[in-house]
Structure formats: C-alpha cells, structure tokens
Design a protein around this nucleic acid. Structure first.
Lengths: 249, 249
DNA sequence: CCTTGCGATGAATCCATAT
DNA sequence: GATATGGATTCATCGCAAG
C-alpha cells in the first residue's frame, strides 16, 4: 500500500513510527496565530480567526488552535524531535509557518536536532490589502536536514519562491494548500521514498506525494478531515482526484 | 536641504539625532551571516563571503562584518533602540535581513520597543540554484511601528512581495538594493516626511526617498561609500542619477 | 474563442459592544 | 476592569457568466 493514514494525535502516532523509516517530513501544523491578545489567539476558533466575516462557505473548523506562544514552541519541538527520530540520515523537513510563528519554528527545528538550511516563501496573490501597511501575502516554509545534505542521492533543484492561490473551487479545508505547490515540494524526497505529514488535514501533501511517485504516511486528529483525506488519497491512486475536491491544477 | 549625510559610526551618529524627528527608519544593516561556523563568519571579509570567487567586478569591501551571533543581536538592539527614540509616534521601521538573521532581527526589533508588524519578501529571480536544496532566492524585510499604525495619516497599500534583481550595470556596492524596490518601500513614510538610514552604503534608500518626495538622513562609516552616496544623493536632486550608477529602473 | 464585467474572498486586523 | 465576541474594513485576484 503506497499510503498509510493514522487517525489520532500526532505525537502519539509518531511514537509508533520506526526509526529511520521516512525520507522527508512535509507538514503544515496549526499556527496558533492570529489575534493581538493571548485570549484572541487561544480562545477563538480557527474559523473565527482566519476567515472573512462575510464569507459564504461553511468549511469545518480544525482543532489544535489553542496553545499560547511558549507552549506552541515546546509542542512543536517535541513534534519535530519525534519526526527527526523517524527520519533517515540526510532526510529533510519542510514546515509551513506564518510570519508570527517563523522565529519559533526555526528555534523548534534546531532544538529538535535538525540543521536549519533556509526559508522558502509561498506567495499568495489573493491576500487582504491593508491600509498603511505592507500586505502579509506570504507564508513561509522553514526547512532543514538530518545531518548533511546528500545532493547526489536526489539531485533536484527546487525554487525558493512558490506563487499560487489557495484552491477556490472544491476547497474542503480552511487552510488548504495548492496541490501544484505541494507537488513541487515533495520532490525534495527521492523518487519512491516516503513522505510523512503529521498534520494531514484534507490530505493535499499526500495527494501530491502519490502523484509524484512517493509513498505517504499521514496522521490526522479530526475524524471529519481524516475521512476526506482517506477518500482523496484513494482517488489519487486511480489518477482521479476530481470527484471530491475538483480539478486542482 | 532635503538630505543630510553623517560620516561615521551609526550608533554615535544616531545619538545626535533629536527625539521624534524621523518618520521612517529604512535600512539594510550588515548581516554578519554567510558561513556555517563562527570563525567562518567573523574571519572572512564581506567580499569573500558575498561574491563569487570568479566574479569580475571589483567592489570595495565594507566594514562591520565581524560580530558573532549573540553580539549581532545585542548591537542591532542598541541600534534599533536609538532609532526608536528618534522616530515619531506611529512611525515605521523596515529592516532588511537574510534568512539566517531573520529570527535575531525580529527579536532585536521587539527588544528595542517596536511593535513587530510583519515580514515582507524581496525576491531575486537571478540567484544560484543549488543541487538537492531549495534555492535561497529571497531576502526579508522585517517591519514594525512605534505604537499603533496610523493608517489615515498615510493611506497607502503596499505589497508584501517585491521582485527585482540586484543592479548589475553600474553597481557600486556589493549588497546594493534595486532602487525600484526602495521607491516602493519609502512610501511607508508620509510624503514630505523624513526617512532615516543608519547604514547608507551607496545611498540607494536616500535616492529613492528623494525621488519620491521624502527627506533623507543617512549615516555611513566608510569614507569610500560616503563619497559615492553624497554624489548620488546630489544627482538625485537634479533628477540625474545615471552618471554614477547607471540606469536603475 | 477571446474579451469584458460582476461578484466573491482572504491562516487580517482592529474596534465597539457584551459578558 | 479584564476578557470574549461580532462586525466593518479593503482591494487585487480569480471564477464564471455574458457578449
């Protein structure tokens, strides 16, 4: 089976994954961001924080958006430590973050043992303009490796900037990533290797991995999204991901 | 006189600038990056670190590239603290950094009292691809304000991503910024207001400020670059910046 | 098939009001 | 008084229908 989807908590599920069994960790954890005060960040739902008041869509909320700053760093470090253990030597980690959590993410990655190698940017052309300010039109991909880079094992040249809008048609998750961006990023994993995503969500990383000929291990806490991911992963194997989430490229 | 150029050390010169006299601090401090180890960073000259071994240009070296990580953070905090004092309420700071110093820069900005507001990206399309890696094609602009944003005083909508290559023809400084990017960024300062750049270098920020109808206060330690900046600023006032640095847009 | 126009929306941000 | 919640703001971009 080219993919496995675990249902449940990320840390718990990671504990069951063997040492040195994964080639790349590619994930988009909940940011626990948004809002000026601690109560705004930890008390409000993802939907309340991140979607427009007048948006007509009715996408499900997602869990894990209630940690304060200090606890977020601690938790992310634990998570990246377990991921590090599961990863082979010279394996790679790509972790999405927003501007607020970027410094915490680079700290956590290094605290977990990874060698921090850089930052790539995902530019979203459709983003909210703001009077008297610079627009926040990018999210960031913090990346690192377990030990040295082995460029000969996987001689790819990847861009440092990815421009793509969030899917609009057939979107099933509030923070769903464009599959074309993920299809580029999974190439950091050698062909036939295994990609791990402890926060699978609607499963875009997995779909991208399967389409590009990589294997996939996912973990998702929410039963709602685990069901969706399961269906999308299944469809990706039959080259037919169109039923549930619409054409994505 | 719409511009003033101080010659000497940034911290010393900032001490002489009155409280609440500046509307925006826009600067590109030496990054003290490049090189994985402390000795690689502090022992090599800026030229050796930031230019290819076979580059044919003969740009002067620049000082201030010999601090270790901890000392860099401390020094940048001092600098941003003095800049904060010199800035009016609701004034803005834009600080360039590379990926390595990004977390240190956001820490220093907040330690100095600024409210950190976000990160913008400068994308350099012409950058070296690297085998087995994601390209480092962006530098970052960490920005913040002294207290609340006053959007009504300066109702501009600025992008979060700037794409432009480093000047090639007529480049006079190793890390010279494209003037078209700086002309966008100086708009964060209200028209007729004053822009401060404690690391003037060849003066691109000043040229951009003058072209956009802002006043400029610069500081430059190196006599070589102070001379160049002086000439470029003078020429900018006569709408003729082409002699010394070539066409830049 | 290409062009034009209309409508919807964003991992935002802030403030007024309610508890 | 501190915290929680709802709503208004804002425009480049993009999907979609009409011409």
């Amino acid at each position: 089976m080219p993919y496995t989807l675990h249902r449940g908590d990320a840390l718990t599920a990671l504990a069951g994954i063997p040492d040195n069994s994964v080639d790349a960790v590619i994930t988009d954890p909940p940011y626990n961001s948004g809002g000026r005060t601690s109560s705004e960040r930890t008390g409000r739902s993802a939907r309340a924080k991140y979607t427009s008041a007048d948006a007509e869509h009715d996408l499900a909320n997602f869990p894990g958006e209630n940690r304060d700053q200090r606890s977020y760093g601690f938790w992310l470090t634990l998570l990246l430590t377990e991921s590090y253990r599961a990863t082979v030597e010279s394996g790679t980690a790509l972790v999405f973050t927003d501007w607020r959590q970027l410094p915490t993410t680079t700290d956590a990655m290094q605290a977990a043992g990874w060698t921090w190698r850089g930052i790539a940017s995902w530019h979203k052309p459709v983003s909210r303009p703001q009077k008297g300010r610079l627009k926040q039109s990018c999210e960031y991909i913090v990346w690192g490796t377990k030990g040295p880079v082995d460029a000969n094992r996987n001689p790819v040249y990847l861009p440092g900037l990815y421009t793509a809008s969030q899917p609009r048609k057939g979107r099933v998750h509030i923070t769903q990533k464009p599959v074309e961006v993920m299809q580029e990023l999974v190439k950091i994993c050698p062909p036939g290797g295994t990609v791990l995503d402890p926060f699978t969500g609607s499963g875009t990383t997995g779909v991208a991995a399967l389409r590009e000929g990589r294997q996939f291990i996912g973990v998702e806490l929410s039963a709602h999204y685990a069901d969706i991911a399961e269906a999308r992963l299944h469809n990706a194997l039959t080259q037919d991901d169109f039923e549930l989430a619409g054409p994505e490229e």
